[in-house]
Amino acid sequence: MNGTTTTPATTTGSGGFDMSRIRPYLGPLALVVMVGFFGALYPDTFLTKSNLVDNILQQVTALAIVASVQTVVMVVGEFDLSVGGLAALATGFAATILNTATIEGVPKEAGSLVFAVFLCVLAGLIGGAINGALVSYLGVLAFIATLAMNEVYKNLARYRVEGKPVYGLVENNFVAVAQGRTLGVPNTIYIAFVIAAIVWFVLDRTTLGRQMYAVGGNPDAARYSGVNIKLVKWTAFAICGVGAALGGLMQSAYNATANTTAPEPWMLKSIAAVFLGMALMRNGRPNLPGTILGVVLFRTLENGLNKTDINNYLQDVINWLAVVLAVLPPAIARIRENR
């Protein structure tokens, strides 16, 4: 038995309650409620510019970039578990060019910034292209393909940096740009915003984006409509690789340290953010505004709970239960629709 308690003889229609109409407002509303709630509790520590801008928004800029490109892969109906590994690999290689001392600690001349960024993007592109080829052209399930490649990329990165964090990335304005501010707002926020905007534009306003939604919606129908579904999927993974690399690069610039373990949480958090966005906007399809909202919502709750006396582990229990809670209503609505 599934425990439903519907009494058929008295059930009336769903009334005037139209989920699809109020859904776009749910996310912003949740954000306002959350900020109001924590703001009322901790007006001095939560509701300050430095907390809202630096501790909440700045802290999720790299994740926002990664979640944006994760959205692209999820739009075509797949997911990429290797974003953390790709970020580690790309930044590991870039950092060993930019550092001012070798891994062994011998001082050296920092390499060209342009070359480092180029190498980072290239590594991300190649990694993403391999993922895409495995999933799209060779038919390996994304789950195992990207899970295994995540370990491959991550451990290649560790091999490159001998498992140590790479310090001393201060030459060539690399760190200065990432740590700098423009009009009082951290530069990383602008960077994340621009990348998210580009991804939004690609998904919403280009033929490629349309084809991606078609492939994710119904691959067979897309194929019969003349869409090259393999190429479209492959492209999604390649874009994801580049984005993950850029996210990792920005993070290590901001920290002035390339740490191969830093991007590890991005795998789960980026996917969770996309799911939050699907629950909050646009008929349950992955979408960029929803993803960004998901990233910010998650971080706001995390930050707010941080101010409380709740045990750190329990804070995470609450954070992730909140994710489940957020995706429940649309899931239930889908079941209800058919009754």
Binding site: Y213, G217, N218, D220, A221, A222, R223, Y224
Partner: peptide, 8 residues
């Protein structure tokens, strides 16, 4: 259903 419509 299978090869025609996109859920859009």
């Amino acid at each position: 259903r299978a090869d025609g419509v996109l859920p859009d």
